[in-house]
Amino acid sequence: MGEFLNYTVNGALIGLTYALVAMGFVVIYRASKVFNLAQGELVVLGGFIVWLMMIQLDLPLIIGLPIAFLCAGIFGFLIDRIFFSRMAGQSVFAMVMVTIGLMILLRGVVLVAFGAQVRQFPAVFPVFPVIWGDFLIPQAMLYGGVITVCVALGLAWFFNRTRAGLRMTAVAEDHQVAMSLGISVRRSVIIAWIMGSMLATLGAIIFLSNRSISFITSEIGLLALPVALLAGLESIAGLILAGILIGIVQGLAAGYLDPALGASVSSVLPFVIMLMILFIRPTGMFGWKTIERV
């Protein structure tokens, strides 16, 4: 029983980090309808900037992290300016092809700038795990879970209650209608890329704290995909539920199925779930179902 709870709780917490990475993905998708396959590379890039600030330059946390977020924001801005601002009006397919190009390019940039070595990521959160009776939880995961839930609530509030956020939600619904109301679609898309890139950096900090980073870390971007699809691509709150769900399934599979079968079922299971969602309910579980009234 203790074992089961341990797998469940740790799975849920890991799932929340997927949800955090998926949030960046969803924020970009909502505004621009760009399905950003390079989200994992943004995580790696953000992670390496943090590494650069804190390990290479040896800056204290309080200075290193704000600079890292600032850099991430600037990267998001530049990516939109360089790759997507001139793509306005192009097909979704063309946009996705550009994100694949971006993925390859960012991977190259990371390899050239930081090399292929595995590097130790700074311990942003305390290292020793929390032990509660039978539970053993890494603190980074615990803080990460709390931060993820707070960020989700904050974003939901932003998109539904603030002027800038409502503008972005209008853009998410329909570019032309948003324009007819005097909303600058361009500006909303730029803000979305900046936010998406910063969220990727936050995801890197939580996911990587006291672990190691290399260009392979971008796989987290792939794990965020099933979470985003399960949530339905538009719903921020849905991401939390979807993340927990996928994390628990993966955690339990890793705990029970993998040893029993002698195979890594847990690493493919999220994608099996993703395919099932795509077959059964392509709009996801909590996302914007197309409301049609005739």
Binding site: L166, A170, E173, D174, V177, L181
Partner: peptide
């Protein structure tokens, strides 16, 4: 202001939020 053809409400927002967007 242009009210487009086809009753283009912001479908996933409430009536209140739709009006607030109008006054953004």
């Amino acid at each position: 202001v242009h009210v487009m053809e086809g009753r283009k409400v912001l479908r996933h927002l409430t009536v209140d939020q739709n009006l607030l967007v109008g006054g953004h």
